[in-house]
């Protein structure tokens, strides 16, 4: 690891200011950034910690009934505090990594990083969440732009994520045997206006919505509604843990299981 300066912001305004200088880098839970720095693959001159900004930490429900989670809220806190309001989301958070990861990693950090195998992008996209930053609100449909790529501008901070609460939802993760990230993870959420299906881990462009499954499930929310569908393997990741065809197959299997578990 190279030397760096460390700034601990107390307010969002402080953090935005600190991030405007040089090649300063925001630090959430550091679950990706710190290992990257240790391997000397990243060398920011300044880290700006977002973990001591009270207005960015915690879980609440707003007047519209949405679950609002501060950007610097850890997975462990979401698992605990969102359970009563949005059980499927809390369950997803409770299975990210291991306890050490869940006690450090944050929802804002995960969404800003947009790892193609991360769990939270599936929840945000599958719930049609709104990603609130210091500058604007971004709909999840406009936010995820590809592997490790998002709509965030340089120095822009995720301050809160707002999740509309569905009638039914479930997340099914089939883990990669070594890292236990999602080899394929599918988030299914049924709203009054229709069903959303978001898939993580599988595609080379990162999280995506499976439109055909959404249409079929909106008409009939049952695992059998997916029987005739198939996901093409073209855009799937292929590596030593699974071929593109295997991942495409798992997308359907995990979607059916999520529907069965949610129904």
């Amino acid at each position: 690891m190279y030397n760096f300066e460390f700034a601990k912001a107390k307010t969002i305004a402080d953090a935005v200011k600190a991030l405007s200088s040089g090649d300063a880098q925001a630090l959430g839970g550091g679950q990706t950034l710190l290992p990257t720095m240790k391997q000397r693959l990243a060398a920011p001159t300044t880290l700006v910690s977002l973990n001591a900004i009270p207005e960015m930490i915690g879980v609440c429900v707003n007047d519209a009934g949405e679950v609002c989670i501060g950007g610097a809220t850890t997975h462990a806190t979401v698992a605990r505090e969102a359970a009563a309001h949005y059980p499927a989301l809390a369950a997803l958070a409770s299975h990210i990594g291991d306890p050490a990861v869940r006690n450090r990693g944050t929802i804002g950090g995960s969404l800003a990083n947009n790892d193609p195998s991360a769990c939270y992008p599936a929840a945000a996209l599958g719930s049609g969440a709104v990603i609130k930053t210091n500058a604007r609100d971004i709909a999840a449909d406009d936010y995820f732009l590809g592997m490790f790529t998002t709509a965030l501008d340089e120095g822009e901070i995720i301050t809160e994520v707002r999740f509309p609460v569905p009638q039914k939802a479930n997340y099914q993760k089939f883990v990669q045997p070594a890292s236990r990230f999602a080899l394929v993870g599918v988030y299914v959420a049924k709203y009054a206006g229709g069903v959303r299906v978001a898939v993580t881990g599988a595609a080379s462009d990162g999280v995506f919505r499976w439109a055909e499954a959404e249409a079929a499930l909106s008409a009939d929310f049952a695992a059998t509604a997916l029987d005739a569908l198939a996901v093409p393997g073209n855009d799937m990741i292929a590596d030593l843990h699974g071929s593109a065809d295997y991942r495409a197959h798992l997308v359907k299997v995990m979607t059916k299981r999520a529907v069965a578990a949610a129904a």
């Binding site: 045997p177 070594a178 890292s179 990230f181 030593l240 843990h241």
Partner: peptide
């Protein structure tokens, strides 16, 4: 069931960390 030391066609080790080498 899980442990595998894998190389690509150029001899590059693909399982150089526990992110890819399953214990």
């Amino acid at each position: 069931l899980v442990e595998h030391t894998a190389y690509d066609e150029n001899g590059q080790l693909l399982t150089a960390s526990y992110m890819d080498y399953a214990m």
